[in-house]
Computed example of a mutant assay.
Amino acid sequence: MDKGEINLLPPLLEGLMVTLQVTAGAIALAVPLAVLAGLGRLSRLRLLRWPASVYVEVFRGTSALVQLFWFFYVLPLFGLRLPAIVVGIVVLALNAGAYGAEVVRGAVLAVPRGQREAALALNMTRWQITRRIVVPQAIPAMLPPATNLMIELLKNTALVSLVTIGDLTFRGQLLRNDTLRTVEIFGLILFLYFGVALLITAGMRLLERRFRAR
């Protein structure tokens, strides 16, 4: 790496910190959304099942970019104006949560029905069955697809550069306009995204091994 490339790193690392902030915030919000929506779709109560289904289908069936533009440009027309970084976190979380809900639902349904019936025969309550039988088996099944969703969320953070958030992609575009050093800049951006994705994968695999060991 020559001296010129080193000079490109500080602004890119500043952008990376924003990308990590958006990613972490979106994941923190997407996880409870996915759990609530996934379990809501399995509920016997229409009052819970229908809103969860509408949420999942709307956010899975529309473009994340269009969702981002709606929250940033359209909602202010109705009097709701949010900071750009909040919009980025909320939209990415809602989008990832919709896909995550299907991961949760599939993992819960994958637990053999016979185990629940046997637990009911032993006079266990539904809460006990969920906590002791369903959840311990469902979580390890959720983690591999959840890892993919987190990496996809990381990559989708590049979209927030279109609503004036100074993330990694945004800083890279500014640098390119100023220096015209396209190869070096986007090579570094690829490397930084790839490094974060590897860290997410390693962390989730460690978590998966611990849950399976238990």
Rank of each mutant, 00 (worst) to 15 (best):
2 D>C: 04
2 D>I: 01
4 G>F: 03
4 G>Q: 05
5 E>C: 14
6 I>F: 06
6 I>S: 09
8 L>S: 03
16 L>S: 03
16 L>P: 09
17 M>F: 14
19 T>W: 07
22 V>T: 07
23 T>V: 13
23 T>H: 07
24 A>G: 11
28 A>G: 07
29 L>D: 11
30 A>N: 02
31 V>R: 01
33 L>M: 15
37 A>S: 10
38 G>C: 06
38 G>S: 01
39 L>N: 04
40 G>M: 03
41 R>N: 11
44 R>H: 11
44 R>C: 08
46 R>Y: 12
46 R>M: 13
50 W>I: 13
50 W>L: 12
53 S>P: 13
55 Y>W: 04
55 Y>K: 15
57 E>N: 15
57 E>I: 12
58 V>E: 04
61 G>A: 02
62 T>G: 12
62 T>S: 12
62 T>F: 06
62 T>N: 06
63 S>T: 02
66 V>N: 10
66 V>I: 07
68 L>D: 05
70 W>E: 01
72 F>I: 06
72 F>M: 08
74 V>P: 11
77 L>Y: 14
80 L>C: 10
80 L>N: 03
85 I>P: 03
86 V>T: 15
86 V>M: 07
87 V>T: 09
91 V>K: 00
93 A>G: 05
93 A>P: 02
95 N>E: 11
95 N>T: 12
96 A>V: 05
97 G>Y: 02
99 Y>H: 02
99 Y>L: 09
100 G>C: 13
103 V>G: 09
106 G>I: 00
106 G>E: 04
107 A>K: 07
108 V>F: 12
112 P>I: 06
112 P>V: 02
113 R>I: 15
114 G>A: 08
114 G>F: 02
115 Q>D: 02
116 R>G: 13
117 E>I: 04
117 E>F: 01
122 L>K: 03
125 T>Q: 13
127 W>A: 12
127 W>V: 11
128 Q>L: 11
128 Q>C: 13
129 I>H: 13
130 T>C: 14
130 T>M: 15
134 V>P: 10
135 V>P: 11
135 V>L: 10
136 P>I: 11
136 P>G: 10
138 A>I: 00
139 I>R: 10
140 P>Y: 07
144 P>I: 11
144 P>E: 05
148 N>H: 15
150 M>S: 07
150 M>N: 10
151 I>L: 04
153 L>N: 04
155 K>T: 07
156 N>I: 03
157 T>P: 00
157 T>N: 01
158 A>W: 02
164 T>G: 01
164 T>R: 07
165 I>G: 07
165 I>F: 04
166 G>W: 15
167 D>R: 06
168 L>A: 00
169 T>W: 00
171 R>S: 12
172 G>E: 04
173 Q>R: 13
175 L>F: 03
177 N>Q: 13
178 D>V: 09
179 T>W: 08
180 L>N: 11
183 V>F: 06
185 I>K: 05
186 F>G: 00
192 L>K: 02
194 F>G: 08
197 A>T: 01
199 L>G: 11
200 I>F: 01
201 T>I: 07
202 A>Q: 12
202 A>D: 04
204 M>N: 12
208 E>Y: 08
209 R>A: 02
211 F>Y: 14
214 R>E: 14
